[in-house]
Design a protein around this nucleic acid. Structure first.
Length: 123
RNA sequence: GGAGUCGGCCGGACGGUCGCUGCGUUUCUCACGAAAUGUGGAGGAAAGUCCGGGCUCCUGUGGACAAGGUGCCAGGUAACGCCUGGGCGGCGUGAGCCGACGGAAAGUGCAACAGAAAGCAAACCGCCGAAGCGUCAGAAAUGGCGCUGGCAAGGGUGAAAGGGUGCGGUAAGAGCGCACCGCGGACGUGGCAACACGGACGGCACGGCAAACCCCACCUGGAGCAAGGCCAAAUAGGAAAGUCGCCACGCAAGUGGCAGCGUGAGUCCCGCGUGCUUUCGGGUAGGCCGCUCGAGGUCGCCGGUGACGGCGAUCCCAGAGGAAUGAUCGUCCUCGACAGAACCCGGCUUACAGGCCGACUCCACCU
């Protein structure tokens, strides 16, 4: 694990904020998914990665569970951002994520971040 | 101590580290902003969106009708379908709980099945044989049978059969008479009222359903913060102004050609006649406001049975926007339920691990 250049912040510039940005990722993004999450990844041409979340109340069960999932994903991204290339990532939760324990969700995300790093480095 | 009723409250705690976000202060920056630091950051239901209001825009001179809602009385409130107090009815040994609880004497309608009959009285089984007629017996009185009839006590059907019980009465019966109960009820008394109490008199009628239509009284304009307002790129289109190539012919209007553009290395054919610049208004993306100081919280005093109201002091207590309020470590306990603000309030309803406080009731026991 190499030391990060940036502090592990999660400011406004690290999030996808508009429909335009989301659409761009959906249009040109590469797919990566596992049991709990489906990712869309696309190079953004910036100096850092950005993330956007797509978790519906319907998927999570209710609003509280939805918030819990979103926070978990964001925290995982925040801690892993130093290892990620400059890409935009949209993380969509699957139904299986709704009832899963937090530790397995975190493991799943950590693996996905590594896959993102390796695929984008090779291409 | 056990069982229970009602009301109120809480909804893991503390500390460290890493993050997100509103506001204040300081520093830096031409500025956008950035950093540091301090401080605030989900709920009792934030939920369902079922009522009531504020706010905003649209519409309307008022009113009537329609449609919808509410429905014992009085009060509280900005308002309510909410709350408080009272009345009536029902349930419970009780504390208490439950109730769409106006009108059936304005009209229309409904009641399956059963039953003779379901709203106007009717008679299946039954009871009677006093009265009238016939007939039989008898000398007659009288008696038997039948018919015309009388009756609604008993049986039976039904959710409901037109007061109940008893005595008298009668051919048998019947409020036919009487007593008590029930019902209606002029009027009187108490109460703001709902209503309660008494009750001359009536002899019993006026059955039920209005969560059937309906009648009566009262209430209600529509849409919603994606309301609504402001600023405002790029592109296309609109308006105005300026400019609008060169040559030939013509006084001029104009005509023709070249250049130009579509169009590409060039040529031919075809099409276009404007193009450019500036400004203006509408307006999209985007941004800002609305956006949190409010029918506000806490405490005290006063008025009121109470809901609540008045006065005074004091506090500022989320404001996001692909949507913050989290993650992690440690310690402790009773090992943590339902659940996430989205313009704001007042209610109702629904979900919920566990716990605390107060008042009261019943049972048992002790003194």
């Amino acid at each position: 694990m190499q030391p990060s250049q940036r502090p592990l912040n999660f400011g406004v510039d690290l999030r996808l904020r508009s429909k335009l940005q989301f659409d761009a990722v959906y249009a040109g993004g590469r797919r990566l998914d596992d049991r709990f999450f489906a990712l869309r990844v696309k190079a953004n041409g910036l100096a850092h990665p950005r993330v956007g979340l797509a978790v519906a109340v319907k998927t999570a069960g209710n609003a509280v569970k939805r918030n819990r999932l979103r926070r978990l994903v964001r925290e995982s991204f925040r801690l892993a951002q130093g290892e990620l290339p400059a890409v935009d990532i949209v993380v969509a939760a699957k139904f299986a994520a709704a009832g899963a324990p937090a530790t397995s969700l975190r493991d799943s995300l950590a693996t996905l971040w590594k896959r993102v790093a390796s695929t984008c480095a090779s291409s």
